[in-house]
Amino acid sequence: MQTAMPPAVEYLRPDPDGFRAYVRDHKQRALTPRVMDEHEAVAKFVADGDYLVYDCNYLQRGPASLIREIIRQQRRDLWIGAKFTYVALGLLIEAGCASRADVGFFGSRGPGFSRALRDGRLKLYEYSNAVMTLRLRAAAQGIGFIPTRSFGGTDGYLWSAARTIEDPFTGLPTVVLPALYPDVAIIHVHQADVYGNARVFGTGIAHIDTALASKKVILSAEEIVDTEELRRNPGLNHIPWFVVDAVVPAQYGAYPGSCQGVYASDPAHVAEVFGAMTQDKLGAYLEKWVYSVGSHEEMLERHVGVKKLLELRRRETVREGYTA
């Protein structure tokens, strides 16, 4: 039941010409190496107040190591594109990194999350998963808005920035969504070369559109491959180098989630992070997995270990389709 009237909803304003000018001046069209470690990439390309999107999520082939690095560097006031999300939003809230989120879906609950909402430290705006990926597709086309056949008639629509117009060609009432041009995107890929040409094997949420739509793009790559290898099958190269700002070598970068065809998820860790969320122990979770270590590699060494890492590889028994 709703008693309040929907307010004029805050949204990230699309600025297609501003975006064009930005990428003209900032994106490297030359094939120049852009490999760096996670610390340098986040220090350079994630700023306080940025609108942040990740593809997939902390538990499903997402850029988990980069999310932890953003928390470690204590970015503030991030606005999160929270589509297809389980615990990532909860972690960013607990760490004090995020203050706003456009919601598609988040499976982040628990006392910490409720407190942030109640205390006004977190503002949520309502969308759906696919409405968020359409917003990214619009930006990937360089336009300001996009029509959709979904979302109309919902309360989410009322509490979002969506509008309804008459389609000038069919006369149909048509819901339109503002294009979403994030400040920064973090994406975990199976393979990238040193310039940022990248391959994702298997399904994704909107990795290509996300890479094209964002002002700054950090890839974490399971494997750095030779450019010569990418030239042998160009049809598999999904993300072009000139949209990528940083390539971070990150084996097990999706841990504790799986990276399809490479390693399985760690169910014990998945249970640990959900348990921490519902029992209000995310602080201890972050201390152990983020703050007590200086890097992703140190986390793997100290808290996961070779035995577990080998086991995760062994448990991923499906490999077909996940290599060139």
Partner: peptide
């Protein structure tokens, strides 16, 4: 009480 949002259900139910 806040829950996780529509996720993919809105697209399914709409289209």
């Amino acid at each position: 009480r806040r829950f996780g949002g529509p996720g993919g259900a809105d697209s399914i139910a709409a289209m």
